[in-house]
Design a protein around this nucleic acid. Structure first.
Lengths: 178, 178
DNA sequence: ATTGCACCGTTCGATCCGCACCGTATGCTC
DNA sequence: GAGCATACGGTGCGGATCGAACGGTGCAAT
């Protein structure tokens, strides 16, 4: 039986989803996982994130198991109500439109030299690509969850396309510079 | 002479930049322009945006000219200090890394069927593409500012690549469905 | 002359979120 | 084995933010 009922936000579903993937976890465990996955396409500040498990537990979506000695870590486990809410949301939610925050584009818009911006972006996307390829490799080897693998495939594809795009843009400005 | 000195944020530079492009403007004018340009890669909530011109005027980066009768609209104009601050920032700022908010990816990560997500994305990017192509066309015909045109070229290229990507992803899931 | 609607913002309150801090363990050094 | 550095694992606070809702102004049509 739930205590209070609370409004479930995307942060809630992230916490539920990560626990569902990983089994019983401490918030810190989840945070590590978050940073290697969800944070790449849906950033969540850690203060918001840390506050969420207790909210969810209060409403009956998670249970808490607290260590008695030492650090008194809390381990959270998902309840049937939790998996239920998660599955329902995943199957019925409509995704809102993607939103970009790209300061480089802003600089270009305002008249900055596009070349250094494009170069910096290529470096950044290349690093991200390497990082995600690493995760993907591990997930495939470990036969990880289909959704996780799909999101990693999409992520690597995305960064490759961005690199290509910035290279094209560089070529364009080279061409017009002559 | 500036009154208070204030911290200039990216919102400040957007306001300065738009007035610089457009000449003397009311906040509402700027908002219209914003929505057709900057908001596509750097969202600014309108409450934040409306508050900015007065801050900038208070610090000497803009001047205010207020209508006497009727709606008492305020028209803002950029000062030399304003163009100065703008130019300096545009030439020296380092762009922070791009950040994505993509709920569709989150759904896929959590196990949702990727097909409807990809389809919805294709629709959305196609609409955006059409919109930006319209702006680009107008800017080119009107011989608009180089930065504005460059950002529109990048934008259209970006949405085209996204469409391609989602089509590839659809093809992938089709293939594995058999 | 009243309704209705687009224009043009402003207010307010809840939420958020980043900075700074703090106790706990685990070495590592001498 | 005492002291110190460093990573772990968070929490508290207060200002910044942001969206819902409101509200006045002009204008056009009835």
């Amino acid at each position: 039986m739930p205590g209070q009922d609370i409004k479930l936000t995307s942060t809630s579903y992230i916490v539920l989803g990560l626990i569902d993937l990983r089994g019983p976890s401490t918030p810190y465990d989840l945070k590590g996982l978050l940073e290697q996955s969800v944070a790449n396409f849906w950033p969540v500040p850690h203060t918001t994130f840390y506050a969420e498990p207790d909210r969810l537990a209060g409403a009956g979506y998670l249970t808490i198991d607290q260590e008695q000695g030492g650090r008194r870590r809390k381990t959270y486990e998902i309840t049937p109500a939790g998996t239920d809410a998660l599955r329902t949301w995943v199957q019925t939610a409509e995704a809102s439109s993607p939103v970009m925050h790209d300061e480089g584009m802003l600089l270009v818009f305002l008249g900055a030299d596009p070349e250094p911006v494009n170069r910096a972006r290529i470096v950044w996307h290349t690093e991200k690509l390497t990082e995600l390829e690493g995760y993907l490799d591990r997930q495939v080897k470990a036969n990880g969850p289909a959704g996780v693998i799909r999101s990693l495939i999409a992520g690597t594809m995305y960064h490759r396309m961005c690199i290509e795009m910035h290279e094209k843009l560089l070529a364009l400005s080279d061409a017009s510079a002559e």
